[in-house]
């Protein structure tokens, strides 16, 4: 079954999501990858105000291609999430409710997700053209000097993802592999 949900996320929405669910996201999501994460955490550590209130929000780990004329955004598939693990718990403590990326997360990130009731979605790595078609608006809202690593505010419609780690800490990268290992 495919579930359709709207952002921002609430406890009720995320608690209803189970590992392996295919989900279509609708609404606003924010992009951020390595360099943007580093800056966000530096801002938090200095006690300054973030360029976006993270409460209930989703961060998509992506550094898109430049948009071709007539396109809203260039190809925009997920990058490897593990590189963000070192910054993630700080953002979850600030109210971040969802993440979109690809690949395994560290144990302490999963623990923090359970504590903060957050969910980790996987988008298909390498499906940048398909995913770009679900983006309906894109606007840079912070760190434009970072080029592809700037923070964009995206409006998405039926953006396809899979629940990779749910609020109960169940992890598709472990359960899936165990099921098919010979």
């Amino acid at each position: 079954m495919i579930k359709s949900i709207n952002t921002p996320l609430t406890d009720d929405i995320v608690e209803d999501l189970n590992v392996g669910d295919r989900v279509l996201l609708n609404g606003i999501i924010y992009t951020g990858r390595d360099a943007a994460h580093k800056r966000l955490v530096e801002i938090i550590n200095k006690g300054e105000e973030l360029p976006v209130d993270l409460k209930g929000q989703i961060i998509y780990y992506v550094g898109p291609c430049p948009a071709k004329p007539g396109w809203i955004i260039g190809s925009a598939g997920p990058t490897t999430s593990g590189r963000m693990d070192v910054y993630t718990n700080t953002l979850l403590d600030k109210g971040l409710k969802g993440m979109i990326g690809k690949g395994q997360r560290r144990e302490d990130v999963v623990d923090s997700m359970m504590k903060n009731k957050a969910v980790y979605f996987a988008a298909i790595g390498g499906a940048g053209a398909l995913l770009a078609e679900a983006v309906k608006e894109a606007q840079i809202i912070a760190f434009p000097e970072l080029g592809p690593e700037a923070i964009y505010k995206l409006k998405v419609e039926n953006f396809p993802v899979t629940v990779a780690i749910d609020t109960k800490g169940r992890d598709l990268y472990k359960t899936g592999r165990d099921k098919y290992k010979r």
Partner: peptide, 15 residues
């Protein structure tokens, strides 16, 4: 995805 990239002449992957 690769069919969209091929027919619309856009990158298969953003990387």
């Amino acid at each position: 995805n690769q069919e969209i990239a091929r027919s619309k002449h856009v990158p298969i992957c953003q990387d």
